[in-house]
Amino acid sequence: ENVVSAPMPGKVLRVLVRVGDRVRVGQGLLVLEAMKMENEIPSPRDGVVKRILVKEGEIVDTGQPKIELG
Rank of each mutant, 00 (worst) to 15 (best):
R22E: 11
K55P: 01
N39E: 10
R18D: 07
M35L: 12
P44H: 09
V48D: 03
V60M: 04
V17S: 00
V19L: 08
L53S: 03
V3Q: 07
R24A: 10
P65A: 12
K66T: 15
N2Y: 15
V3E: 06
V15R: 01
I52D: 01
V4W: 04
R24V: 13
I41R: 01
V54T: 05
R51V: 08
P65Y: 08
I67P: 02
V25F: 12
E33P: 00
I41N: 01
G20M: 07
N2G: 10
L53W: 12
V19M: 06
K36C: 15
Q64Y: 07
L16S: 01
P44N: 05
D21A: 07
R14N: 03
A6G: 06
T62Y: 12
G26H: 06
L13R: 05
D46E: 10
R18S: 11
A34G: 09
V25W: 10
V19A: 07
A6L: 06
P9V: 09
G70V: 14
P42F: 12
I41F: 05
V23C: 06
E68R: 06
Q64H: 09
E33R: 08
R22D: 09
V23M: 02
P42I: 13
L13V: 11
M8Q: 08
G28L: 14
Q27V: 05
G10K: 02
V15S: 00
G28Q: 07
G20I: 04
I52E: 01
K66N: 15
A6Q: 04
L16T: 02
L32N: 00
L32Q: 00
L69G: 01
E33Q: 11
Q64R: 07
G57T: 03
R24S: 11
V4N: 03
M37P: 02
A6Y: 06
D21V: 08
I41E: 02
Q64F: 06
P7L: 12
P7K: 13
E1T: 14
V23K: 02
I67F: 08
E1I: 14
R51Q: 09
G70A: 14
K11Y: 07
V48H: 08
D61R: 15
V19P: 07
V15M: 08
Q27K: 04
V17N: 01
L13M: 08
G20Q: 04
V17E: 00
V19G: 01
L29S: 01
M8I: 09
A6V: 07
V49F: 00
G70S: 13
N2K: 09
D46M: 08
R14Q: 06
K66Q: 15
E58V: 05
L53M: 13
I59V: 11
K66E: 15
G47Y: 04
K11C: 09
L69E: 03
G47A: 10
